[in-house]
Design a protein around this nucleic acid. Structure first.
Length: 562
RNA sequence: GUCCCUGUAGUUCAACGGAUAGAACAACAGCCUUCUAAGCUGUGGAUCUAGGUUCGAUUCCUAGCGGGGAUACCA
């Protein structure tokens, strides 16, 4: 917050520009620090000496309480009276909008996320893209961007050939009506089992897909049925998770544009036939070829994705297009982006926000084998566990299903989002269903504690939020710590957006909650001292507001009672 | 083989190249006549190996070892 001012101050004193200052790792070391190692080389003096000399020369401005030399650092301690006032006023004024900024004004961000394959149920593997994408959606929106959330459904491709073949061979329209997703899954699994014994099935599936692409009436009809039945199921789960998309334009949507894309590609790049397929050779870039048409002349995933990219550029005029897709598709996107670059189509706008996979200690997960952890089951398990815990703890909100739902979902979402997205997650039920420690329920609980204090304050003192308070009364270490946290929120949101990493917000909220709970256990908010109470109540209100806003950015709800 | 990601307490995760490597879970020991104990306090315990760059390396570079992924018609 005062970073620039401190920098200028030092620059002015020593007459050197572009200095780097740091934020010390601990509160005892102040709020900002200037390391003197670099100067040591230039001035040929020891860093410690320089620190000592310099500290005396600096004229202390009034927002600085103290300048202290610690080792080879000059440490600045900010006067928190002024800063508390600023932060608390801002939060109380902006409320649910605190953290929102307008740095993305007039800019569009397209986020491609979730994007499941039709005809297979959503499983735990879909969770990452779905929650990371949703969170980035909210983060960018809060930064003032116009965001377009696209669920790029996998609703075209050879897999439909497999499904159509399987349905024609073993399917039942009665079963399909009864439980569409289950029946389709069974067929998919059966296909893979059978095709292991009989490799001709794969050819048969490709033929069925070819017929589908050639608009075979029967196949097209089946495709339509499968698609709409699946989509309905998906939407049920998105509704539970409270996630919305602006578009469900999946792969099939681009069918009408493939020809034009082909033309454009052929015009601007060297395409060639290789082993019967139409490709763009990428050997120069040490990559396998980019497939336009497969050897049986059906469209490839590459071609459909290229069309989607071109369409999105044209339709949304985006500042950036984010693909929230797992790391196993990294090569695919490298190829795609290389092609876009060769076609001079703003490659820099395209970002693959990749993430590590869930790994499983045993053979728990393989769609083809039929061993699946269904997303719906995970969510239900978590919600039921929340209910059980609420009953065991004799929770105030006992039997409140809405609350249990919010807690249960929060736990699952947070368990995913709090990980650095680059890393693989070893799937572990205990961890996904944790309600203690660094979890969403911990944050929700902290929020409830805040509300509880606010309620009591209202009852006893009839305090309203927009009170004038004496900021000097917020002087305890634990209070200052919280104020610093609150002041950091905006930067955290920006940092999280810049890195496409919601876990930065998640970790921040844990820190804030921890600092609050330490405060809560050491200092009574409501006391006989009315002025002190007023000041502390304002602080509590701010904490609750920031937890709420932060959780909202993660796609997690707060609850009012637990 | 090649390319990408990754390696930190028993386990799961943090740490713009900076100060004594932070948490959580698990273990153990404490704290509820006081604002909700889904909490708080305390104890033990970690940077894969070998070099290099640097005043300073968990972070950057090189090599090795381990884990994951990708590697021409799945998406």
């Amino acid at each position: 917050m005062f970073e620039k001012k401190i920098k200028d101050l030092i620059s002015k004193t020593i007459g050197i520009k572009n200095l780097e200052i740091e934020i010390p790792p601990k509160q005892e070391l102040g709020d900002y620090a200037f390391p003197c190692f670099e100067l040591s080389k230039k001035l040929n003096k020891s860093a410690q000496e320089i620190a000592n000399d310099l500290a005396v020369k600096i004229k202390k401005p009034n927002f600085v309480k103290e300048i202290r030399v610690l080792g080879s650092y000059i440490n600045f301690f900010i006067d928190y009276n002024s800063i508390s006032k600023k932060i608390i006023n801002e939060i109380l004024k902006e409320k649910n909008n605190f953290g929102s900024q307008n740095i993305g004004k007039n800019r569009v961000i397209v986020i491609d996320f979730s994007s499941p394959n039709i005809a297979k149920p959503l499983n735990i593997g879909h969770l990452r893209s779905t929650v990371i994408g949703n969170s980035l959606y909210k983060i960018y929106k809060s930064l003032g961007y116009k965001v377009v959330g696209v669920n790029h459904l996998g609703d075209w491709g050879t897999q439909f050939g497999k499904l159509i073949y399987a349905y024609k061979t073993w399917g039942s329209s009665i079963e399909l009506k009864k439980d569409p997703i289950k029946h389709l899954l069974d067929l998919y699994v059966k296909f893979h089992k059978e095709s292991k014994q009989n490799s001709k099935l794969d050819d048969a599936a490709r033929d069925e897909f070819q017929k589908l692409e050639k608009r075979d009436k029967k196949n097209l009809e089946l495709w339509k049925t499968f698609r709409s039945l699946s989509l309905e199921e998906f939407k049920k789960i998105y509704k539970i998770l409270n996630i919305k998309f602006d578009s469900y334009d999946g792969e099939a949507f681009y069918n009408s544009q493939l020809e034009e894309t082909l033309k454009l590609t052929k015009k601007s790049l060297n395409t060639k036939i290789s082993e019967g397929a139409l490709i763009v050779d990428l050997e120069k870039f040490k990559m396998p070829p980019f497939f336009l048409l497969k050897s049986n002349e059906t469209s490839s995933y590459h071609l459909r994705d290229l069309s989607a990219a071109i369409y999105r550029l044209k339709t949304y005029k985006p500042y950036k297009i984010l693909y929230v897709v797992g790391c196993e598709q990294e090569l695919h996107f490298k190829q795609l982006f290389t092609i876009l670059d060769l076609m001079k189509l703003n490659k820099d706008k395209f970002i693959h926000v990749n993430f590590g996979m869930f790994s499983f200690s045993d053979n728990t997960m393989s769609t083809r084998e039929g061993n699946i952890i269904f997303l719906e089951d995970v969510l239900n398990k978590s919600i039921n566990l929340a209910k059980k815990i609420m009953a065991d703890k004799k929770s105030i909100a006992k039997n409140d299903n809405e609350t249990a739902k919010k807690i249960g979902l929060g736990a699952v979402i947070f368990a995913d989002l709090s990980n650095d997205r680059n890393k693989n997650i070893i799937f572990n039920w205990n961890r996904v269903l944790a309600f203690d420690g660094d979890t969403a329920p911990y944050l929700q609980y902290t929020y409830v504690r805040c509300l509880s204090i606010l309620e009591k304050a209202k009852k006893e003192y009839k305090l309203t939020p927009d009170i004038k308070i004496d900021y000097k009364l917020l002087k305890e270490d634990s209070e200052i710590k919280i104020i610093k946290d609150l002041g950091n929120f905006k930067n955290i949101v920006i940092k999280s957006a810049e890195n496409y990493k919601p876990n930065i917000v998640a970790n921040y909220l844990i820190d804030l909650a921890k600092d609050f709970n330490e405060f809560y256990n050491n200092i009574r908010v409501i006391s006989n001292d009315i002025n002190s109470t007023k000041a502390k109540v304002a602080l509590v209100l701010c904490v609750s507001q920031v937890i709420k806003n932060g959780l909202n950015l993660l796609g997690i709800s707060t609850v009012n009672k637990m």
